[in-house]
Amino acid sequence: MSLRRLLCKLIRDRSLTYNVLKTRALSSQSSDRSSDSDTSRQTHFGFQSVNEDEKWKKVHEVFETVADKYDLMNDAMSFGIHRIWKDIFMARLAPTHGTKLLDMAGGTGDITFRYINYLKNLGPAPDNKSSSVTVCDINQAMLDVGKVRAQRQGFTEACGVNVQWLCGDAENLQLPDESFTAYTIAFGIRNCTHIDKVLEEAYRVLTPGGRFMCLEFSHIPNETLQWVYDQYSFQVIPVLGQLLAGQWRPYQYLVESIRQFPNQEKLKGMIENAGFRQVTYENLTFGTCAIHSGFKI
């Protein structure tokens, strides 16, 4: 009897979730473009509608509060699979000696450390080629975590790759044009208010031939799996957040923002609109994540 009640509840929840999904546009662009005053521009923060200025602050708060527990929670929520995703991501990028990487939203250094390791495994670099990586994040707290990890794990000057840490906004980079040969953004583009601006900036800072790569949560094409995934996201992840990090809201935001993010094809279209060519994507774990890749040629 109780089982039946539970099932009923699940089904009801499911339809509720879908209704919410249907009614909201799957894009992070401001829903009120025609309005003149900036203050009334709305965007979404999870399933809430907030002013654009507020989203920035709210995202900032989220990551400030979770920075120290970020890695633990990533492991707990994805059963450690996020490490494999990031490994695959780096294997697809396949950096070579002489690559100048901008690791956007790479605060805790997950992508940067993999990049350095990949280059190390390639063997010694020729004398005329030096690789570099610029870790850029909007949040100083995340960068601090990354710096500490870099020292602890021994990614220092001695490894032959020039590492720089920079606090900056992906939508408005304080970096010269055509200064990087690769741009990666892993689990970061979702938190930006204007994806199109981020992509434009990415296009601007890349040299011709440069590669843009994005690792981000995406949408599962299979309905049944999507349902299972929804259940896990809405019933388990916020609880995990509460238990392990002592925070419910940030993880509620996390799963909601994943639902609001454009699906694979739509993001591909957005990347193409920014001017990138040869845009492709690859689904990871049935589409939970997707790697998008584009070239500035």
């Binding site: 697809r92 990028l93 396949a94 950096p95 070579t96 000696h97 002489g98 690559t99 100048k100 040969t181 690769a182 040299t207 011709p208 031939g209 440069g210 590669r211 040869q278 492709t280 890749s293 070239f295 040629i297």
Partner: peptide, 23 residues
Amino acid sequence: TTESLTAGAEAAGYPGITHGLFP
């Protein structure tokens, strides 16, 4: 190998990372 592609990309005036055009 990818190494040749990297060298080719560099010879064509692109950065080595452009070898990603050939998955």
